[in-house]
């Protein structure tokens, strides 16, 4: 009986953790990130946390007292990103980034995190 209880507890704990992980990743949607166009088209995302991918638009980068401001684009649509943290080392114009934060109507993405997506192609000097 005791052994069985221990097995049961182990299995239940593992299942709960798995369930939580699966839910927190794919829960709601299967999407890790959305494109700028997808975010702009979806009214239901206003005020919600989102992850948006896009390339940093040329000449859009500004550093202000309130933080960094720049636009990201998917080639069709652009969106403003407001960010206060540390920029990833690979951050530059035209680099692909993922902004994590709240989508504010009329403003853009108030990003809590900014991730850089590196190319999967490795080139030498």
């Amino acid at each position: 009986m005791e052994r069985r209880t221990r097995i049961l507890i182990t299995v239940v704990i593992v299942l709960i953790l798995l369930g939580y992980l699966v839910y927190s990743t794919v829960g709601g949607s299967f999407l890790y990130y959305r494109t700028v166009s997808e975010v702009k088209m979806d009214e239901s995302l206003h005020g919600k946390p989102v992850r948006v991918i896009g390339k940093v638009v040329k000449d859009s980068f500004e550093e202000k007292e309130s933080g960094y401001r720049f636009k990201i684009s998917d080639g069709k649509e652009e969106i403003l990103v407001l960010y206060k943290g540390i920029l990833p080392s690979t951050f530059k114009e035209d680099a692909e980034v993922i902004a994590e934060g709240i989508y504010e109507r009329g403003v853009g993405i108030r990003a809590k995190n900014l991730l850089a997506r590196c190319p999967s192609k490795y080139i030498t000097k």
């Binding site: 182990t10 299995v11 593992v14 953790l17 798995l18 992980l21 699966v22 927190s24 990743t25 794919v26 890790y32 540390i86 920029l87 990833p88 080392s89 690979t90 995190n113 900014l114 991730l115 850089a116 997506r117 590196c118």
Partner: peptide
Amino acid sequence: AWGVWWTWEPRLTTSLIMWLLYAGYLL
């Protein structure tokens, strides 16, 4: 490379699930 130690994206999450499952195997 990305600017974070961890992010809940599919490869990282599924790999952690795999790790947990085999930790469960040993338990």
